[in-house]
Write a protein that binds this DNA or RNA. Sequence first.
DNA 1: ATGGCGATGTGATGTTATTACATCAACATC
DNA 2: GATGTTGATGTAATAACATCACATCGCCAT
Lengths: 135, 135
Amino acid sequence: MQKAMHAPELTKNQRLVLDALSREDGPLSAYTLLDQLREHGFRAPLQVYRALEKLIDYGLVHRLESLNSFVACSHPHDHAHGMIAFAICEKCGQVDEFSDDMVESRLSGWSKDHAFKLSKTTIEMRGTCAQCKAA
Amino acid sequence: MQKAMHAPELTKNQRLVLDALSREDGPLSAYTLLDQLREHGFRAPLQVYRALEKLIDYGLVHRLESLNSFVACSHPHDHAHGMIAFAICEKCGQVDEFSDDMVESRLSGWSKDHAFKLSKTTIEMRGTCAQCKAA
DNA sequence: ATGGCGATGTGATGTTATTACATCAACATC
DNA sequence: GATGTTGATGTAATAACATCACATCGCCAT
């Protein structure tokens, strides 16, 4: 169960990064974001990474570990999202975000049974989406 | 459901990398492996990455996406391992590897429902292990 | 012996992420 | 108004992770 801290007003850089991610339907790497934002004055990776860090804290952006990239949250207003799973199409890059209570309860259960204090869970499925499979 | 292809005899480099990983109780990065193996003649990252790639194919090593590092499989003889989950202690680096049929069936179920052709699943829990929590 | 093939060696390069340090704006306190 | 504090920002350098391109070698089937 992750706690997304409440999001205050975003700063200029955070807004720029979030908007850039929201315009995309798929994930972007930090450096791709940097390139897109150069015209808005971004000059260094750190500007992107700092904005991303906050956006992730606020639950507005997710990091996809298996891609080293970042995606806008698809239900940013659902403040209660716990464990989130991602289905990532390797053909088209599309990402589906979903939760499953049973998965969450099994993983939490394992943690409880093993006295493991869970702080963050990554669930990422790689494969081919329905559309790409059809094509 | 991952398919681990049957492992043939390992090559010299694969053997060296696997042995190095097996000696550790936690994960190692490719570059840490490289450093450890310099005395055995390793000189370039690619030697490590190539060996790792095969070892992963054979199911003898797992990649931890959230750590960019690699760990020897804890049940390398269990040829049937499907989805594997990892519990990673952020204090001591210890990794517990386990499977859960229910988790697997829920994620497979989602994939089937969404016509998503699943090729590989990453499940990584970060937190604090029982020992570190006690200490 | 010749060709094919998988493994290896090597250097250069590409990509992702962080460290260190300087500056700035907003706001509070004296 | 001067001063301190805090969070955001700017910038350069560097660290950490991963791949590309190309040459070579050993093995084995023809």
